[in-house]
Write a protein that binds this DNA or RNA. Structure first.
Lengths: 334, 334
DNA sequence: ACAAGATGCGCAAGCGCTTGCGCACGTCGA
DNA sequence: TCGACGTGCGCAAGCGCTTGCGCATCTTGT
């Protein structure tokens, strides 16, 4: 294991420069030498040391991606989209998951030392000051986490979709709303909450206080129980993601509440299983993998010295199923 | 951006050795010098070049993980489990996703050059010969993909759980079975199919031919339609994962079939949404993140020169919900 | 047959860092 | 007062590789 270029050179009876050239962009090497070198490399299980290659200037670029290690498919899709595009662009990707309570600083710094550019995804993984610190030393983009001055950001349209979604529920005759999700300023969810309140205000409805519940299934279950205990104070629940919405729906049903008749529930993300719930979950589809891919592209451009637009917003769209009160799947927004 | 240790040394008025020592395991440096160096580093936004550090012998170990870039939460959990443990053990993790038709070889080789050890997850990402080739040059473990001679493998118990699951359905009075999933020799799914056939044989029931359908939702939908067209040739469907099972259930219901009365359907993986389906999906829970974590641990041990047991099998357990015919959730296996 | 160019290869510098060794001081015990 | 240590730091080697440059050797045109 771990043969070096010297051993390969020895075995092939050439110099290390020849080995290097033979194994790479192959300029000016005779065919016979090249074969000899290749064979020697093969016999020794030679694998060039990537650190040395990098140091010596050959571009083995790698990109880092940091995200919270929460459950759910959202972050996974982000990572997948990023990796796919990064691979196509010939970058390798280093993955860093950050727990909610862990101190991200040392880990993120180590990552930054290791990669040529980084993408910070979602608010929770690293705070703004950390991101700004890193951005001073490496090309950096943010994804779905609001904008920092001077940094390219990519995110999905949220405010308008949330307003549309809320308006749709208003059109179904709903009047007593609740919103489930933690509202970090600058986050995606905050933008959705803004759209939510705007639509309600425009409809002349009361804007409920922000519940500020975390986005997990326990919240959903708890909310359902609370609602039933309070004799259904709401007739429409806008959830921060589909997992929570699923939990709310399920638990309401268990407690004998009819969804959507008594309470409409909508989610966000359009996870794959949203369509298999009964009622089908009305939700907002986001181009999650697209966000990841775009982040990779921006990093690539940044590394190539190109300028990158500061803010990219990808479109989202409503997916009407039944949990909002629609009878059947509809092909297009009402 | 990208200040070097030389510039820091200049600015602090010391030699590069002092900078290196001051910023690291700080042996034998006066406090005043150390502060001066730190300040200089800070002002220059200095980040040590990881490639150089690696080359010079300081252990910045990184582990690679290669998996198919299929949808679903299974691989995401594997990756998360791996990353968490690897981080704890002070390894960074490089992620490589391989498409089903893409040629994995060059990408995997590049990855191998870049990391100190690799984990291959699931059969589809890289074939045995590739894995064997890489294993000759780097410590390697396989996860949920069967065993290769000489390589540590970790996987979840499959055969027995599949047999238990099948037997459970037999106890519910089911007699006409089908199995959904591609049966690559040596794969997890193959082991499950083996358990499935064993249980049927032991029960004196007919073993259906292997449908060998891919594990996606289209397969599920197609199967449902086919079954209805054929007047329900099966009364129990054992699916290779929960996503397929969800699709089968949904589509059967759409076609007016009662699940589980007319047809029982069970899945595998216990994805989070399995419990929110109606009927709740009976399935097999696997310690997926645990598999990933274990792989990271094994790699860590291998790099430390320790021996690692060749095969580790993690326990799985049945999760009884209603889609098998059970009336209500049960706390423990029947 | 000979200069001019093409071809094949080796030399050596250098990428940014870590670390063993040794030198110059300062401190202490006798 | 002097030798024996301890402390703080610099020197320089070396990690494994890439690549510009230059030197032979071979090919080609005339």
């Amino acid at each position: 294991m771990n043969a070096t270029i010297y051993e390969v050179a020895d075995r092939a009876g050439v110099s290390i420069s020849t080995v290097s050239r033979a194994l790479r962009h192959g300029g000016r090497i005779s065919e016979s030498t090249r074969t000899r070198v290749r064979e020697a490399a093969e016999e020794l299980n030679y694998l060039p040391n990537a650190a040395a290659q990098t140091l010596a200037g050959s571009a083995v670029r790698s990109l880092g991606i940091v995200l919270p290690h929460v459950q759910g498919t959202y972050y996974a899709q982000l990572a997948v989209g990023f990796e796919r595009r990064a691979s196509e662009l010939d970058h390798s990707v280093v993955l860093l998951l950050v727990g909610p309570d862990a101190d991200a600083r040392p880990a993120v710094r180590r990552l930054a030392a290791q990669v040529d550019g980084l993408a910070f995804m979602a608010k929770s993984a690293a705070d703004d000051s950390l991101v700004a610190e890193i951005a001073r030393r490496r090309p950096t983009v943010t994804v779905a986490r609001g904008q920092l001055p001077g940094l390219p950001a990519v995110q999905a349209e949220s405010e308008r979709a949330a307003a549309d979604l809320t308006r749709h529920l208003v059109e179904h005759g709903r009047t007593r709303f609740a919103f489930v999700g933690p509202i970090d300023p600058g986050s995606d969810i905050a933008a959705r909450y803004a759209g939510f309140t705007r639509a309600l205000t425009e409809a002349g409805l009361e804007v409920p206080p922000n519940t500020d519940l975390p986005l997990d299934e326990d919240s959903g279950r708890a909310l359902a129980h609370e609602m039933v205990a309070d004799h259904l104070p709401h007739d429409a629940i806008v959830c921060g993601n589909d997992e929570v919405a699923a939990a709310v729906v399920y638990e309401l049903q268990e407690l004998g509440v009819d969804v959507p008749r008594d309470v409409a529930v909508v989610g966000w993300d359009d996870i794959r299983l949203a369509r298999y719930l009964r009622p089908g979950l009305t939700t907002v589809a986001q181009p999650v993998a697209g966000l990841g891919a775009l982040a990779a592209e921006h990093l690539h451009a940044l590394l190539a010295g190109e300028d990158v637009v500061e803010m990219t917003v990808l479109p989202t769209y409503l997916v009407h199923r039944q949990s909002c009160g629609c009878d059947a799947p509809r092909p297009s927004p009402c």
